[in-house]
């Protein structure tokens, strides 16, 4: 009780954050380290009698020679690039168009949020059904009643990959649009008025005012979408199971299969570590671009 006020405040604050620190330490940071530890051992869940022999970097050497893993790595990158690109592009267009006062704006916003709110498993099943070879809406829209032309879209490697991207873009473009919209609304109208008085065209206004001022919002949307795309799993699990012929296999799905289907806890953990390192590097890169604003904002 005799402690000075400032000191008491510090103690109170420290006590308040304990539960949060405990959770993220035990269930997030410790597991990261533990994944690295596991990746240096040979652990096969179905063979507990071999124990956990330390094998050094052997699992990593095997990973480099694992063609499916490298293929999944490339697929993951392709998926991240293509889907994020289209999500931001559509997001920007949608945001620019609906950035105005109009009747029923709340309804539009709600309609746009629905794909985002739908569980990914559900949207995956929905699109899987739309691309179904016999009963699918996609075949019906393309070929009408000409049943003989119906295709099994998800059985074609290139299209299966596209289908996953389409589903992801469908689900999250609008989310990107909302983030970008929030950024658009911070741009003061006076800037546009001044530009109009100076005789700037709509395109010039977009290039010289909208884009530069929108950069922070765009980068944040890009960061969020990229990190989320790296985690792609539900779509692949439900729609294609990584097939056909590994054409839609991505790292998170491959790692899941190695660890939990095949029980290769040691080898699978190298994939966990790889995915972590890649996404960490990408996040750092973005955060350097965005600057430390994100941290300062709350610090």
């Amino acid at each position: 009780m005799s402690l000075p006020l400032i000191k008491r405040e510090r103690i109170f604050a420290a006590v308040l954050i304990i539960p949060c620190i405990l959770f993220i330490t035990v269930f997030a940071f410790y597991p990261i380290g533990y994944s690295f530890y596991l990746s240096l051992h040979r652990i096969i869940l179905s063979l507990p009698e071999i124990g956990q022999p330390f094998v050094g970097l052997e699992n990593y050497r095997a990973l480099l020679h694992d063609k499916v893993a490298m293929h999944s790595l490339i697929n993951t990158f392709l998926f991240v690039f293509i889907s994020t690109f289209f999500e931001l592009l559509f997001g920007l267009v949608i945001a620019l168009v609906i950035n105005r006062q109009f009747k029923g704006r709340g309804f539009v916003r709600a309609a746009v949020l629905i794909p985002w709110a739908i569980p990914t498993v559900v949207s995956s099943q929905m699109w899987r059904f739309i691309f179904n070879d016999k009963y699918g809406l996609f075949n019906f829209i393309l070929f009408g009643t000409d049943v003989s032309s119906y295709k099994a879209w998800l059985a074609e490697p290139v299209f299966a990959f596209l289908a996953i991207i389409i589903t992801d873009v469908w689900k999250t473009s609008c989310f990107a649009a909302l983030l970008i919209l929030a950024g658009l609304q911070t741009i003061p109208d006076e800037l546009y008025e001044a530009a109009r008085i100076d005789g700037a065209s709509a395109w010039q206004q977009f290039r010289k005012i909208t884009l530069p001022l929108l950069k922070p919002a765009l980068l944040v949307a890009l960061l969020f979408r990229t990190m989320d795309a790296f985690r792609v799993f539900d779509l692949v699990f439900v729609m294609t199971q990584g097939g056909p012929a590994d054409s839609t296999n991505v790292l998170q799905f491959y790692g899941y299969k190695k660890i939990f289907t095949e029980g290769l806890m040691g080898y699978g953990s190298t994939i966990s570590v790889l995915v972590f390192l890649i996404s960490f590097a990408v996040a750092m890169l973005y955060i350097r671009f965005i600057g430390t604003k994100l941290f300062k904002e709350t610090a």
């Binding site: 993220i24 269930f27 597991p31 990190m227 985690r231 570590v273 995915v275 996404s279 941290f295």
Partner: peptide
Amino acid sequence: IMGALLMVSMFPQISIAGPV
């Protein structure tokens, strides 16, 4: 603290799945 939380929000789940 906020940086650590931001990091957690970006973890791909597979990187902690085995240990969890």
